[in-house]
Simulated assay, not measured.
Amino acid sequence: MAERYSSFTPGGTGWLLQRITAAFLVVVLAFHFFQLHFITHAADVTFAGTQARMEHVGYFLTMVLFLVTATFHGINGVYNALVNQGLDGIQKKVVLAVLTIAGLALIAQGTYVALVMAGWA
């Protein structure tokens, strides 16, 4: 039988954060889907409606937290999948640096867009 290997240390911080972000994403994705498919039907989603929703502090914070959480969860998952496939040494450090920079850029750009949509920038 094949031996199970994971770059996550069971009970470690990375392992725990991956699970916490997954649980949070399930809840926020459900909210997001419900909001934009049942309350506001997809065909009725407009730029002005998005601006109106983003003006509410609770909605704004939820969407920014959604962005940060999804970015971390995705990048952490990709990085650990690559480590599980045998990535090591300098390549591992380069991939981590590139993914971290890409994640920070995504969060910065997404936060800026959210601020503009809310009329706060």
Score class of each variant (00 low, 15 high):
T9Q: 10
E55N: 09
H73L: 06
F47E: 08
L106M: 14
F34K: 10
F34E: 12
V83N: 01
T46Q: 10
V113C: 03
L29V: 06
T62D: 03
W120F: 14
V28Y: 08
L61V: 14
L82M: 14
V113T: 12
V64N: 10
G89R: 04
A118M: 12
V113A: 13
A42V: 08
G74N: 06
T9R: 12
T21R: 01
Y5F: 14
I101D: 02
L104N: 04
V57H: 14
L67P: 01
D44K: 02
G119D: 14
H37K: 11
L115Q: 03
A121Q: 06
L106W: 04
Y59P: 00
F31A: 13
I101T: 11
A48D: 09
V113F: 11
L106H: 04
V94L: 09
Y112A: 05
N84F: 07
L61N: 10
E3S: 13
A118T: 08
D44E: 11
V27D: 08
T9I: 15
A48R: 13
L67S: 01
A105T: 13
A30H: 04
A42W: 11
V27H: 06
E3N: 08
L25Y: 11
L29G: 09
L82Y: 06
T100V: 08
E3I: 14
A105R: 04
T111Y: 09
T100Q: 05
T62K: 05
T71K: 00
Y79H: 07
N84D: 15
V27E: 10
G119A: 13
V57Q: 14
S6F: 04
L67W: 06
L96G: 01
I20K: 09
A102Y: 07
H37R: 15
A23C: 10
P10S: 11
F34Y: 15
V68E: 01
G12W: 12
Q109V: 13
F47R: 11
T13I: 15
V78F: 11
T21P: 01
G58F: 08
T21W: 04
M63G: 00
G14R: 12
M54E: 06
L99K: 02
T69W: 00
Q91N: 07
G14K: 10
L87T: 01
R19A: 04
A118Q: 13
G74L: 07
I90C: 00
V27A: 15
N76T: 00
